[in-house]
């Protein structure tokens, strides 16, 4: 039971909202500082769906995890994800899909609280792309699996910024 992990620094702009300014027009608030955010990213195996799943947490400069509303505001999330989705404190859902796109849950190895991109459609989406490129007769099983994982990262990259 292993998993891949890395930590990436992100940034967000802080708007000065101290007490005197709260009455002020929102357009008048100016960005005052940049806050560093720490994004912990994990790739762990989903035993239920038999595919890798992308888990992450984003922490502010005090080490507190960001709630979903703030996560969606970061540049980590592709803006396309914010369209046509509905967010609660627990999950982000698109349309009438069976599973939420993004949800809270226990990390499958560490048991710690995490956000994860739901892996229910992963096999179908990656499989569809693989069908288009799988005709290369030179590939052995291993290079096919590597290609599968590369394609998986590409698919995940359509939702979040993995740069």
């Amino acid at each position: 039971m292993g998993f891949l992990t890395r930590t990436v620094m992100l940034h967000r702009t802080i708007y000065d909202m101290d007490s005197e300014d709260q009455e002020a027009d929102e357009a008048a608030t100016k960005p005052t500082a940049t806050e560093s955010l720490s994004c912990h990213q994990h790739v762990a195996y989903s035993a239920s769906f038999q595919v890798p799943a992308f888990y992450f947490n984003i922490f502010d400069s005090n080490g507190s995890p960001l709630p979903i509303s703030d996560i969606l505001e970061t540049a980590f999330f592709r803006s396309s994800i914010r369209e046509d989705t509905k967010a609660t404190t627990f999950a982000v859902s698109a349309g009438d899909a069976a599973f939420p796109l993004l949800s809270q849950g226990d990390h499958p190895v560490l048991g710690s609280p995490s956000w994860y991109l739901h892996p229910c459609e992963t096999a179908n989406v990656v499989g569809e792309l693989m069908d288009e490129i799988q005709h290369n007769p030179d590939w052995n099983d291993e290079s096919r699996l590597v290609r599968w994982l590369e394609t998986w990262f590409m698919v995940v990259g359509t939702a979040v910024d993995l740069e």
Binding site: P65, T89, F90, A91, Q104, P113
Partner: peptide
């Protein structure tokens, strides 16, 4: 927050429960 999921509420609990139910179905 390093041990527990954020924002316990009846609605969040329902979403967690329905998610488990669907995963079991799958």
């Amino acid at each position: 927050s390093d041990k527990l999921l954020l924002s316990p509420s009846v609605e969040a609990c329902k979403q967690a429960f329905m998610g488990q139910l669907k995963e079991a179905d799958f």
